[in-house]
Each structure stands twice: as C-alpha cells, then as structure tokens.
C-alpha cells in the first residue's frame, strides 16, 4: 500500500488542522475536526508499530510466567502460568494479538495479586520485575503528540 499509511494519515492530519478547521464556523465542528486530526496523527504511529508492540508484550509476559517456579503459588495458578508461557500468537492480526494480550494480562493480574499475598522476598522481587515490565510496556506505547504552534 503506497503511499505509506502513516504518511497519508500525517498529511491528512495537517490538512484537517491547517486547512479545513480554520474554514469552519461552528465551534463544535472546529473542535471535533481538530480532535479527529489529532487521532489520525496518533494512528499513524500505531499503524506502524501496533503489531510489534503487542507481540513483544505478549512474549515478555510469557517469559515472566516461566520465572514463577518454586514460589509456592496457590491452587492451579502455577499450572495455568506454565500453559500460557508455552502459548503462541494465533495470528499477527491486531485483534488476535489484542485478545491474547488481554488473556495474558488477566493472568498477570492474578499472578501479581498472588505474589502480594505470599509476601516473601522472591515474591517481592518478581513483583518489582513485573512493575518494571508494565512501566516499560507503557513507555513503549506512548502516543506521539504533535507540536502545534
């Protein structure tokens, strides 16, 4: 698909903001046009990186699940973590990656809560490692914000 999608979205953002919005008279329409343009600018970045970010996050969560042996996790949590650690992406469609991301994050929440209940030094260390992952993942997902005026 050429021209590249991010380029088309970025130019469309510029046209909306600099050429369309100034020629509108209704305040509500001007505001909406600007917001739509801003979201096109953000979508340009997400189109390029979206699959990569999700696949990386999913891989990192599986790696964390592999580190949970010997912690004394309750019930069948250890078993479910092990099964998830051996999982694979169904496809590279964003919707499939999102569904797997949701499934893994749900399990991650359960793991975090269990570690907090254990209250041991290894549990606290893994808990801190998970927060490090979450912070890094959030930073990687940072949306670009255009410099305007």
């Amino acid at each position: 698909m050429k021209p590249d999608v991010p380029l088309v979205l970025q130019h469309s953002f510029g046209k909306l903001l600099l050429e369309v919005a100034p020629n509108l008279t209704a305040e509500y329409a001007v505001g909406n046009t600007s917001v739509i343009g801003l979201m096109m600018f953000m979508s340009a970045a997400e189109f390029e990186r979206g699959a990569q970010l999700r696949a990386e996050e999913n891989a990192e969560m599986r790696a964390i699940f592999e580190e949970t042996g010997g912690l004394g996790l309750p019930g069948d949590l250890q078993k479910r973590l092990g099964a998830a650690a051996g999982g694979r992406e169904a496809s590279l469609l964003i919707s499939d990656l999102d569904a797997e991301n949701d499934r893994l994050k749900t399990l991650l929440i359960e793991l975090q809560a269990a570690l907090e209940e254990l209250d041991s030094q290894p549990a606290r260390k893994l808990g801190a490692r998970i927060w490090g992952f979450l912070r890094q993942a959030a930073e990687k997902r940072k949306l670009p914000y255009p410099s305007i005026g």
Binding site: W131, L143, Y145
Partner: peptide
C-alpha cells in the same frame, strides 16, 4: 481521544510510581 491519550499518560505515570514503590518494598 480521552480513552487513547489520557489512558496512555496515566498508565505511564502510574506504572512509574508503582515501580518505584515496588522496588523500595523489594
């Protein structure tokens, strides 16, 4: 936009704060 942008900002700010707390506790 609120859901995209503001969630992004708060997730980054909050995870930073929580990581700092978790490291102190560990």
């Amino acid at each position: 936009l609120s859901s995209w942008y503001c969630t992004d900002v708060h997730n980054r700010l909050l995870s930073k704060r929580m990581q700092e707390i978790a490291e102190e506790e560990a």
